[in-house]
Deep mutational scan, measured.
Amino acid sequence: LSIEDFTQAFGMTPAAFSALPRWKQQNLKKEKGLF
């Protein structure tokens, strides 16, 4: 994903996403259907 696509999909920047705990990242991916 481009940074723009990522931000649009997750509502945050890739840097903010990577700062989240691993379990939170997994849950967000599942919610968006990317996992």
Rank of each mutant, 00 (worst) to 15 (best):
K30T: 08
Q25H: 00
L28A: 02
L1I: 15
L20S: 05
R22I: 13
Q25D: 03
F35K: 00
K32D: 12
L20M: 12
F6I: 09
Q8H: 04
F17C: 05
E31W: 04
K32Q: 11
S2M: 05
L1K: 03
A19H: 08
S18G: 10
K30L: 10
S2W: 04
P14K: 09
K29A: 07
G11V: 01
Q25R: 04
S2A: 05
Q25W: 02
M12L: 04
E31P: 01
P14D: 09
L28V: 06
A9F: 03
F6N: 06
N27W: 11
P14F: 05
W23Q: 13
L28Y: 10
S2K: 06
G11Q: 02
L20N: 13
G33C: 07
S18N: 12
W23D: 15
F6A: 04
Q26F: 13
K32C: 12
A16G: 06
K30V: 09
S2G: 08
K30I: 14
L28W: 04
D5Q: 10
F6H: 01
M12N: 03
G11D: 03
F17T: 10
L20K: 10
L34C: 04
I3W: 07
T7W: 04
S2E: 07
Q26T: 10
Q26A: 12
F10S: 07
K24I: 09
F6C: 14
F17P: 09
Q26V: 12
Q26I: 14
A9E: 14
Q25L: 02
G33S: 11
T7S: 07
K30S: 08
L34Y: 08
L34I: 15
R22P: 15
L20R: 03
M12H: 01
K24E: 15
T7L: 11
K29V: 11
I3S: 10
E4T: 06
W23G: 11
N27P: 01
P14I: 06
F35L: 13
M12C: 01
D5R: 04
L28D: 07
D5K: 10
A9I: 12
K29M: 14
I3M: 13
F35V: 15
A19F: 03
W23A: 12
F6K: 00
I3L: 09
A9W: 07
T7E: 11
T7Q: 06
L34N: 14
E4F: 04
Q26W: 07
F10P: 07
E4N: 06
K29L: 11
L34W: 13
E31V: 06
A15E: 14
T7I: 12
F35Y: 14
I3N: 07
A15I: 02
P21E: 04
K30H: 04
F6P: 10
F6G: 00
D5I: 04
P14M: 06
K32T: 03
Q26E: 15
K30E: 12
E31C: 07
L1S: 13
E4G: 03
E4D: 08
S2D: 13
T13R: 00
I3A: 05
A15D: 13
L28I: 11
S18K: 10
K29T: 07
P21N: 01
P14C: 05
A9K: 15
I3K: 13
P14Y: 03
G11I: 00
R22E: 15
K29E: 12
K32R: 11
G33T: 05
A15G: 09
A15H: 04
F10V: 09
R22T: 15
Q8I: 09
L20E: 13
D5L: 01
Q25Y: 01
N27M: 14
Q8M: 09
A15V: 08
R22V: 15
P14S: 05
F10L: 08
P21T: 02
R22N: 14
K24T: 09
A19N: 13
F6M: 03
Q25T: 00
G33A: 10
P21H: 00
W23M: 09
S2R: 11
A19D: 13
W23C: 08
A9Q: 15
K32Y: 13
F35C: 10
Q25P: 03
R22C: 13
N27H: 13
Q25G: 01
M12Q: 00
F35T: 13
F10E: 08
K24Y: 03
T7F: 11
I3T: 09
D5F: 04
M12P: 03
G11F: 01
F17S: 09
N27I: 12
Q8F: 02
E4I: 04
E4S: 08
E4V: 04
I3P: 11
A19P: 02
S2C: 05
Q25M: 01
W23I: 08
A16L: 03
P21S: 03
L20P: 13
R22K: 15
F6V: 00
G33E: 13
K29S: 10
L28H: 06
L28P: 00
A16N: 13
Q8D: 06
P21Y: 00
